[in-house]
Write a protein that binds this DNA or RNA. Structure first.
Length: 305
DNA sequence: TATCCAAGGTAAGTT
DNA sequence: AACTTACCTTGGATA
């Protein structure tokens, strides 16, 4: 086992691991107590979290287990390889300068309150295939249940990985998921999303398209590219761009943001996704509008206080 | 206990 | 191109 610590002083603008991982951006992390997103478990502040980096993203071409915990003075990590610090920096966007991002955000009361309440929350950069599948599953679904679905997919189809005496599961590869049947996936309570997941996995497995290819495109073209996947509309495409592909200007128009537009920025409602998206993106300052979206989402979702 | 409702939407069919 | 409707499932609210 490899382990280490990264001093919190290295995180410009602070870091809140729990808000980052439990704000509904990412479904590839878990807590050993299984308490992620459940209302009956107190927010655990210094809990350990773990994920399995897919083999395609590691130096060894083997799935890599990463565990981390935020202590008083440092982010503590344990992993199956010594490359964890680089991977954590990317996955948790630890190089983002939150002070600079907040400074570059317009002075809007709702944004100020959200940034104050969840200071230190960072965007994530999930592996793209898992992110794509997660947000296909997110349609009409509560955050806690999306997390449950991803866990069941990993246990049913992902490679098991032994680490420090425990067994973890990597997220399934496109090929592994493509081999599942719609009925198999419905048994995991995916509901009508089951065929979407299967067909999208098949598209990626057969090389027809890959979410990573959207990185090379301009923002709106990238969003259009992603909507070719089955079960992916504008909203899910924006989620993948923001939470996986480094498009920090993307503002997914989910139910919470639509509520915020209705109540706080009604002039941004333009009657269709593309124009409304453009308007709220400008209102939120453009370049880092996705950061503002995620803070507003988390702030409103947790009661707005 | 039974019923209803909404949850980070999308695809397919109509006008 | 804009507008409707159906779609799985289930925890939590309401009666």
């Amino acid at each position: 086992m490899h382990a280490g610590r990264v001093p919190v002083t290295e995180f410009a603008g602070g870091f809140d691991l729990q808000s980052t991982l439990e704000s509904g951006q990412t479904y590839v992390w878990d807590r050993p107590d299984g308490g992620m997103f459940t209302d009956d478990v107190a927010w655990g502040g210094d809990a350990w979290y773990h994920t399995v980096l897919p083999a395609t993203e590691t130096e060894t071409n083997e799935p890599e287990v990463l565990r981390c915990r935020l202590g008083e003075e440092a982010l503590e990590w344990e992993a199956s390889t010594p490359h964890a610090p680089e991977h954590l920096t990317r996955l948790l966007r630890l190089d983002d300068d939150l002070d600079a991002i907040v400074d570059a955000t317009p002075e809007l009361p709702l944004l100020r309150r959200a940034y104050e309440r969840y200071g230190g929350m960072r965007l994530v950069e999930d592996p793209s295939f898992a992110c794509l599948i997660s947000f296909i599953c997110s349609a009409q679904m509560r955050v806690s249940r999306i997390h449950g679905m991803q866990g069941r997919l990993a246990r049913a189809y992902g490679d098991p990985v032994e680490f420090d005496g425990d067994t973890y599961h990597a997220f399934p590869t496109p090929g592994q998921l493509a081999a599942a049947t719609e009925a198999d996936l419905r048994d995991l309570s995916l509901g009508y999303r089951a065929p979407y997941v299967q067909r999208t996995a098949e598209m990626v497995a057969e090389g027809e398209a890959h979410p990573d290819d959207a990185r090379e495109l301009e923002y709106e073209a990238a969003r259009d590219y992603l909507t070719q996947f089955v079960g992916v509309g504008d909203k899910v495409a924006d989620c993948v761009l923001l939470f996986s592909l480094d498009f920090l200007q993307a503002v997914p128009l989910d139910t919470w943001i639509r509520t915020a537009i209705e109540e706080y920025y009604p002039e941004c409602e333009k009657g269709n996704y593309a124009d409304t998206s453009r308007a709220i993106r400008e209102r939120f300052g453009g370049e880092y509008a996705g950061y503002a979206q995620t803070y507003v989402f988390q702030f409103l979702r947790t009661g707005g206080e």
